[in-house]
Design a protein around this nucleic acid. Sequence first.
DNA 1: ACATGGTAGACCTAAGAGGTCTATATTCAA
DNA 2: TTGAATATAGACCTCTTAGGTCTACCATGT
Lengths: 155, 155
Amino acid sequence: MRSKRERSSLMNVGRRVDYAVRALSYLAGQPEGRIVSRVDIEKKQDIPSYYLSKIMKDLVAGGLVQSHVGSKGGFSLARPAEKISVKEVYETVERPIVLMECLQTGESYCSFCSVCTQRSIWEVAQRLLANYLAGVSIGDIAMGRGLTEQLSSHN
Amino acid sequence: MRSKRERSSLMNVGRRVDYAVRALSYLAGQPEGRIVSRVDIEKKQDIPSYYLSKIMKDLVAGGLVQSHVGSKGGFSLARPAEKISVKEVYETVERPIVLMECLQTGESYCSFCSVCTQRSIWEVAQRLLANYLAGVSIGDIAMGRGLTEQLSSHN
DNA sequence: ACATGGTAGACCTAAGAGGTCTATATTCAA
DNA sequence: TTGAATATAGACCTCTTAGGTCTACCATGT
């Protein structure tokens, strides 16, 4: 039997991740100790108003960012940008990296799981991806290492 | 300015791909020249009734499978299973492999595209994935090469 | 005290994933 | 020649999510 309607939980590198990475890179580009407000980040990075509040909440909860409530409040990185991997960012604002559902749910996704020869294909692909992303940091992105141009973080 | 609501077109290794791979592996496991009906594949592979018809349509249109209309009709592989890559299957039943929208849409997704330092990260990740998937064939899966067990293709 | 911030949460809309069904044309075989 | 078994083409349905917007509330610096 197939299972009823377990939700996708699949890989989705969409706006949330994009905005999160950009916000973090922007923070990384600030002088040490500087606190930046949500509105400021949204304006400089062309992120829709309010939207970032939900993302920052996740980043705070995940321990990647420190928040400062009250007037003159805002956000700053909770640790050095070099120690924040893109994989971590993805998993913080989205979910664990899972390419195919059976890799997470097993038999309840597909009854042939135990004898499936397709499974290991996606397992390898997933590991490939996760490993690469774990090796790239927000610091790398903010510094523009191996990339086309300088970052737009100083505006 | 951000663009209005272009649809996701992102990586999704869901049921369609799963069913397609299983159907193709099943066909690969048949004696040379044998034609198998949709209903047969659905039953043996535990795929919901009718659903496969849409998938097989794509596989036929993509030239991976040959269809035979009429009584005693059905499907058979259009070429040796070793020459059908998983990447090709994915792209035939789903869409081109694209991890993040800006890699496809460019400036119309994000105005910072030309100076973006995040972009190349996803570009590399995407290439990693695509290359790996291009190197795995339905033949590999049907033969169970490097995998846990024998395939369930002989039932 | 009050403007400026984050926090928490409700709410909305469009689109996609997965699934089901039917009408039609084609072909084999009795 | 007829009828059963096929693929083909397409409509249709439902549920969930991505992305976005807004408001009530609380904290804090000046």
